[in-house]
C-alpha cells in the first residue's frame, strides 16, 4: 500500500512539472536547451532555422561567423532535418556507461545463451503463443494509459482484444483479435502518457538488466509494474521467475539484433541512447 502511495506522489510531482513546463516558457526553455552536442537555447535555434529558410534576408543577428558560413552551405531541407534531431540530457554518463557494459555482459553471458538454448528446444509457434499470453496479461497497462490520454477508442480496442483473446484465443495464447477482427495491439505505457502531457525525459538512465530508460520513463515503468498482474504473484521469487521467463522468450525472437546494432555503430553507447530517444518520441506521438 505504501509503495502505491509513493508512486502516486511521484506522479503528482511529474504532472506538476509538466504543467509548469507548459505555462512557463522560461522553464520550458531551460528543459529543452539541455542537449548533448548542441548547447544553443531553443529560441535561438528556431531563429537560426528561420534564417536558413530566408537566406537573403539581411540584418539578422547570428552567433559567430563560422556557423553562418556553415549554414549558407547547408540547404533549407538539411536545416529542417537537423531540427528534427531529438536529444536527451546525460548528466550521469559515468554511471550509464558502466551500466551499459554491465548489460552488455549480461546479454552475452546470460540472456543470449539462455534464449538460444530455449529457442532450439521450443518451436517458434509455441514461443509466439507464450509471447501473446504475456502481452494479453499486460492489457491493464495499455488500457489505463490510453484512458489517461483520453484515447477512448484505443482503450476500447484493448478491452475488446482482452475479452476476445482471453476467450476465443484460449487465455490469450492466440492473438485472434488481430487475425479475425483486425484489431491490433497498440503499445501504450505510463511513460508515454507522461510524454503525451508534455513531460520531458528529464535525463537518460541506464538500469542494470532493465536497460535504457529516463527519469520520466522510470517513474512510468514502476507504475506499469502495479498494472501488471505478474507483479502480484506471491512469493517474490515466483514473480521474478515469471518475468525472467517472459524476457527469455521475448529475446528468442531478437537474437542477433543487438549484435548488428553494435556492429553498425561507431559508438554503440551513443547509438543506443539516440535510438531509445527517437523510438520513445515516436511512441509518444502516436
Amino acid at each position: 500500500m505504501k509503495k502505491i502511495l509513493y508512486f502516486v506522489i511521484a506522479c503528482i510531482f511529474l504532472l506538476a512539472h509538466g504543467v509548469l513546463a507548459q505555462y512557463s516558457s522560461a522553464y520550458a526553455e531551460a528543459n529543452t536547451s539541455v542537449t548533448s552536442g548542441d548547447q544553443k537555447p531553443a529560441q535561438q535555434r528556431e531563429m537560426e532555422s528561420s534564417v536558413a529558410v530566408q537566406p537573403k534576408s539581411e540584418g539578422v543577428s547570428t552567433t559567430g561567423h563560422q556557423q553562418t558560413e556553415a549554414r549558407e552551405a547547408v540547404s533549407e531541407e538539411e536545416q529542417i532535418a537537423e531540427n528534427d534531431v531529438v536529444t536527451i540530457a546525460d548528466p550521469i554518463k559515468p554511471w550509464n556507461t558502466a551500466m551499459y557494459h554491465v548489460n552488455d555482459k549480461f546479454y552475452f553471458w546470460l540472456l543470449k545463451p539462455a534464449s538460444q538454448g530455449y529457442s532450439t528446444v521450443v518451436p517458434e509457434d509455441i514461443r509466439l503463443s507464450v509471447s501473446n499470453f504475456f502481452k494479453n496479461l499486460t492489457t491493464p497497462i495499455r488500457f489505463v494509459s490510453s484512458l489517461l490520454q483520453l484515447k477512448v477508442k484505443k482503450a476500447g480496442n484493448e478491452l475488446v482484444r482482452f475479452v476476445y483473446n482471453s476467450t476465443a484465443g484460449i487465455g490469450g495464447l492466440a492473438d485472434v483479435a488481430k487475425t479475425d477482427l483486425d484489431i491490433k495491439r497498440h503499445e501504450e505505457d505510463l511513460g508515454q502518457t507522461f510524454g503525451h502531457y508534455g513531460i520531458g525525459h528529464g535525463f537518460y538512465i541506464v538500469w542494470p538488466i532493465l536497460g535504457p530508460s529516463s527519469l520520466r520513463d522510470t517513474v512510468g515503468m514502476v507504475g506499469d509494474w502495479f498494472l501488471d498482474p505478474v507483479y502480484y504473484v506471491n512469493p517474490l521469487e515466483a514473480s521474478l521467475g515469471i518475468s525472467a521467463y517472459d524476457r527469455v522468450n521475448e529475446t528468442s525472437f531478437y537474437i542477433g539484433d543487438y549484435e548488428d546494432l553494435k556492429k553498425a555503430a561507431i559508438d554503440p553507447y551513443v547509438s543506443i541512447r539516440d535510438a531509445y530517444t527517437q523510438n520513445r518520441k515516436k511512441k509518444v506521438e502516436e
Partner: peptide, 16 residues
Amino acid sequence: EGVSLINNYRTQFREI
C-alpha cells in the same frame, strides 16, 4: 520504428 538512420549517426559523429 521511428529511429532515423542519419539522425542516429549524426548524434554519434557530433559527439566525436
